[in-house]
């Protein structure tokens, strides 16, 4: 398949500028049974995140006397992509994403407050449109806040890609397929630190630095929408008296 032209006159295939995010909506507390939950709709992505815990660590010999164990499962539903029926069960990609997502929350959660327990995070991609890991982790952060689990910060991220030789934020599916680099980033705006970082595609150091600048800059908008989601839930409860 020939690569389409993805950037014309500074506009991307869906009309966005290089620093524009796709439409983004987050809803907190969408599941009744989970301790915390959130739904994120980001571009055509639809991803559900849920949290159980802290609860007693299982199996018991895995309990850590110094901190809570964090488990994170990322998976894509077999019907989530535009292409063929996916295999159910986690593939290698999903296992790797689950692992790096777990590391994000091992950092963000104040795990030392809950020795010998575990916190289970599930990220279920119902529909995928590029940038699912970043969207899923952003939703999981809201779900953790909704569960009242103490964290250093409400974390979030924006992926950066190189498309037609230009760095752009929040790559969608066509840009992901035909772009030459993809850089998912999760940040903490409170500490100005990077919690998740992956990269593929050849870039100079200067380009990586620019990509990080873009992520930090646009993450501010994502954070505002996360906060709005949480406030909506709790304000609604108030007036629904």
């Amino acid at each position: 398949m020939e690569k389409p032209v993805l950037i014309r006159n500074g506009k991307r295939n869906d009309g966005r500028g290089v620093m524009d995010l796709r439409p983004l909506k987050i809803t907190a507390g969408v599941l009744k049974k989970a301790d915390g939950s959130a739904m994120i709709e980001w571009g055509k992505n639809k991803i559900l995140a849920a949290v159980y815990g802290p609860r007693e660590a299982f199996p018991k010999h895995m309990a850590n006397p110094n901190r809570a164990n964090v488990n994170c499962k990322y998976s894509m539903a077999p019907f989530s992509s535009l292409e063929e029926h996916g295999r159910s069960g986690p593939n290698r990609r999903a296992i790797e994403i689950g692992k790096v997502a777990k590391h994000v929350f091992e950092n963000a959660i104040l795990t030392n407050q809950f020795p010998k327990t575990q916190i289970d995070i599930s990220i279920e991609v119902l529909q995928s449109d590029g940038g699912t890991r970043i969207a899923g982790i952003t939703a999981a952060a809201v779900a953790l806040a909704d569960a009242g689990i103490p964290m250093r910060d409400l974390v979030q991220g924006v992926s950066v890609g190189k498309v037609d030789g230009v760095l752009v934020v929040d790559v969608d599916k066509p840009e992901d397929n035909y772009g030459t680099s993809d850089i998912p980033v999760i940040v903490s705006l409170r500490s100005n630190e990077i919690l998740l970082f992956q990269l593929d595609g050849m870039l100079s150091k200067k380009e990586v630095e620019t990509a990080l600048d873009y992520s930090f800059e646009t993450a501010k908008t994502v954070r505002e929408l996360q906060i709005e989601a949480l406030k909506n839930k709790y304000v609604l409860e108030e007036s629904g008296a």
Binding site: V100, H103, N192, E193, I194, L195, F197
Partner: peptide, 19 residues
């Protein structure tokens, strides 16, 4: 050129550390 990267483990990294 940098062609791949992976951050792993629970600690975070600053911009200075990245550079």
């Amino acid at each position: 050129l940098l062609c791949a990267a992976q951050k792993s483990g629970r600690s975070a990294f600053s911009r200075e550390e990245f550079s």
